[in-house]
Amino acid sequence: MLRDITIGQYYPSGSIIHKLDPRVKIVSTLVFIVLLFLVKTFIGFALAILFLGSVVRLSKVPLKFILRGLKAIMFLLMFTVILNMLMTKGEVWLRLWIFTITKQGVYQALFIGLRLVLLIIGSSLMTLTTTPIELTDGIERLMRPLKKLHVPVHDIAMMMSIALRFIPILLEETDKIMKAQMARGADFESGRLIQRAKAMIPILVPLFLSAFRRAGELATAMEARCYRGDSGRTRMKELKYKKRDYIAYLVLILFAALLIATRHLPDIPAIIRSLMS
């Protein structure tokens, strides 16, 4: 089950996208998501698909691998698309029993669907090409200006990276506890939802206990290694923008400008229709 979620997974291929500064990738992903909601025309979507497609190509991550991430949200996607198709009012195309499908509804559904698919692919591409530790480093650097507002930026980043390190350990431990309890006759698979939820309590209690014990030990170990927060701390790998990062920013700006420009283009199907009449 957990294997299907590609968001948050890393796919090493050593491509130019992998080598980009994490800050570039975080900023680009955010900008891309915002732009997706500004797109209103077919040309705009074509442009966004072209852009994302070339980034995927450059990243050398197999398309199959990226599309696997969509499986997890398939239900949500279909639900949104169908609901949009049926609920939008406008020029009626088709009437079936109590359902009416309108022209605007079909367009709306198509756009929403495309938006969601592009959004998921875009954000999973970021995590697929960036290691968790680079990601937290990038976030820490991007949020650094917030330090002036007394936001504990360093602490947040440290917590995130420790959480990432302990997720697999705690998953393994959950598995161990479940097996130990199954060996003594615990039943996690049958029964109704409430019964199954109740069966989880005996897993959570020892899991929490051990998580707290681990946290205590980790804190002692960090103290023993002279950790004292942000003050006077240096980093082995300081993030530094290279030429390719500036080029990437330039490409992003060009793409954004083009995409916004498409909003002001006349609607092509409308032009064709007016030419034909």
Binding site: I133, S161, L218, A221, C226, R233, T234, M236, K237
Partner: peptide, 24 residues
């Protein structure tokens, strides 16, 4: 397990000297 802080070996080894403020 409870004394390794980073999720990459070399980053973890660097943790101590980073705390001491050693040059990169």
């Amino acid at each position: 397990d409870n004394q390794i802080i980073a999720s990459i070996v070399e980053e973890d080894v660097a943790f101590g000297p980073e705390n001491l403020g050693v040059e990169p």
